[in-house]
Every structure is written in C-alpha cells, then in structure tokens.
C-alpha cells in the first residue's frame, strides 16, 4: 500500500492552532500543496495578515512576513517590486482585505500588481471574537449586530469579486468554497491558477474562498459548512469573475 496524500513540505509539520473545522487549515494545506507542485517554495515570500491567520508565518515553510492589519497588498507590492524573481502571496481575511485594507486591495488590483491574493471570506471577524465583517450577511448575527445585520444600521455586505471585476487591472478573480470536498478540489485549482498567473507575469490574481468560522457563528463545523452552501453562496455566487483568457 502507498500513502497517496503525503504532507506538503511547504507546510511546517506541526498542528495548526485554528479551531476545529475552521477553513483556514484547509486553505493553508492547499497553498502548501501548490507550492510543492509548482516547485516554488524556495522563492516564495508569503504575507501573513492580522486575523486568525496571523500565525500563517509559522505554518508556511517559506520566507514569511507579518504586517499591519489590511496592508498585505501594499507589503506584497513592496516585496514584488524589489524582488520580481520571488513569488509573493498575501493571505487575508475579510475584515483585513475588505474593510480596513480595502484601499490597498483596490489599488493593487488597479495597478495590476503581479501578486497572488488568497482572500478568506468567513463573513465575520474571527480573531477578535465574532464582530460584524464587511461581508456579514443581512440578518446574520454577530457580537456587534446581535439582532442581525440590518440595512438601516449596517448597510449591505460587500461583494469583493464583483466589485474588483470592474477594474481592468484585476486579471484573475474567482470565488470558490471549501464547504465540501469537491469545493476544496475546485479551490485548489483556482489557487493554483492564481500562482501560475504570477509565474506567467499575468498581473493581479485573487481567489475569494468562502470559508467557515464555526466558533463565532455558534455552529458545529458541519452546520457551518451547510451555512456556507445554503446562505452564503446565494449572496456570494461561486465562479470566475475575471480571467486572463477573457
């Protein structure tokens, strides 16, 4: 018998501290597998966000930098422009990318920086304990909208892929989900493309991954996965929003 899923060498071999069932762990593994498959580990520099994935710098077995909340795209820009021979990715949550760091997101896309962004949309601020995110659904409760997000008080959730698709510089935008195993496989394909684009100097590539935060959603991981499929995907439809082939 043969082991068919060896642990990727681009991931440090130690348990990750994410909560049970959290999507961050799944996406970490996918990125590491892709680094292995594309053989880019030794020239990849990753940018860890502020958010639950702040510890990404411990988990990815490549050069890493951890910077201020939301500024990943600016940091990645600085690295990529200084070291174009490196593959640079920024890993960000929804508060990080779509709230405090929205300007950096939009402008790095507008400049079509040749970087790869992995955007984990879990519709909540995980790390700080479940406050409302820019992506929190209407009616969804959080610790800062305990009665549910309302248009009158909180406005509408932001659809990042749809918004960035307006920019010519955003060369590749895809939204996927890791709520099911086939979704995980599709997510890997998308992220791999986002890295391959950078190798091919295509420009700004981002994959938005619909993920779970069972802990702050007050659900079991299985309920959380169902919430993604039943509640999130109708608002955040999966698919390719821009591709270089277009």
């Amino acid at each position: 018998m043969k082991l068919i899923n060896k642990k990727p060498s681009s991931l440090v071999d130690k348990p990750m501290r994410y909560c049970p069932g959290c999507g961050h762990g799944i996406v970490h593994r996918l990125i590491a597998e892709i680094m292995d498959e594309l053989d880019i580990r030794e020239h990849t520099v990753g940018v860890a966000p502020v958010g639950c994935a702040v510890f990404a710098d411990e988990y990815f077995n490549c050069d890493m930098i951890q910077g201020p909340h939301g500024r990943g795209p600016a940091i990645a820009t600085g690295i990529k422009r200084s070291k174009p021979e490196c593959i640079v990715f920024s890993y960000q949550g929804d508060g990080d990318l779509a709230s405090i760091g929205m300007a950096e997101t939009v402008h790095s896309a507008a400049r079509s920086e040749n970087i790869t962004i992995i955007f984990i949309n879990n519709a909540i601020y995980g790390m700080t304990g479940g406050q409302m995110a820019p992506t929190t659904l209407l009616g969804q409760t959080s610790s800062t909208c305990p009665a549910g997000r309302s248009v009158a008080v909180n406005g509408y959730p932001i659809k990042v892929c749809e918004m960035l698709a307006q920019l010519e510089g955003a060369r590749y935008l895809e939204r996927t989900s890791v709520s099911t195993a086939p979704g995980v496989i599709k997510t890997k394909k998308a992220i791999k493309k986002a890295f391959q684009n950078q190798i091919d100097c295509v420009g700004f590539s981002m994959v938005e991954v619909l993920s779970t935060c069972p802990t702050n959603w007050g659900m079991t991981p299985v309920q959380g996965a169902r919430f993604v499929d039943e509640k999130m995907t109708p608002i955040y439809p999966l698919g390719v929003f821009r591709s270089p082939e277009q």
């Binding site: 018998m1 043969k2 068919i4 991931l11 348990p15 049970p20 762990g25 593994r29 195993a181």
Partner: peptide
C-alpha cells in the same frame, strides 16, 4: 475506496489515505 475526499476536507492534515 481510498478516494481521499475526507482528507481533502480535513483542516488539520490528520488523515492519511493508503491505497
């Protein structure tokens, strides 16, 4: 059957699939 779907969804790299 060793399809590996369980390992795909596992967030903690806790499942080895042998075939």
């Amino acid at each position: 059957t060793g399809c590996g779907l369980c390992a795909q969804i596992c967030p903690d790299l806790a499942i080895e699939v042998w075939k």
